[in-house]
Amino acid sequence: MRFCGEVSAAVSHEIKNVLAIIKETAGLLGDHAARALAEEQQLPPEQVREATGAIDRQVRRADGIVRRLNRFAHSVDRESEGVELGESCRLLAELATRLLAGRSATLQVVVPEQEVTVQASRFRLLHFLWRGLESVLAATGPGARLQLVVSARCETAGTADAPGTPGIHGAAKTVPGGHLELSWQAGEVVGSGAPEFPGPAELELLAQLAAEFELNPEEQRFVLLLP
């Protein structure tokens, strides 16, 4: 519930900002029209064009925000479905725009050429990653740079990891499942340093996702392995 509330609050804030711009732009056009009327002049076409252009930009922006919210709302439709990890991570980054901006942080999502699809609950996956983001941001302070890398799961000599992971030798074999790695560099002000993650609620999400998780605070990264 808290997760849904946080996402809705962030999205509604973005929509409010868009509405505020539309309102002020319409108001400005109204001001121009009132002045033109008072001076018995024609309303200059460029003022109309500027205003309609601004409104059009904001309507398209709002459309993007609402589409995003719609994708998120439908993430609860199925208990388990084919979840494309690249798309889900991009959605997470978009939903977290305000969360990141509030801490002057950036999140780069890196996806492979080949889509990586896992069978999972999209909602739980988003929920887990959102909590991870929050914990990392709380630990790193403002200005952090985060990177979320999606890759297929690979198996090398009895271990499962991402292809090309340093330190692993031998031929890597791609196996079903996905590998997500969130790494970060702290900003100007360093917080506690290590995210307090996962807590009991996140451990439950991990169990529901049947995922494996590894946090490495020294290397400033965590890895989520999805079946």
Partner: peptide, 16 residues
């Protein structure tokens, strides 16, 4: 305001 378009439009209205 961090919304540049908002702040400029509001500024134009205030100036008028």
């Amino acid at each position: 305001d961090d919304e540049a378009e908002f702040v400029e439009t509001l500024a134009a209205r205030m100036r008028s």
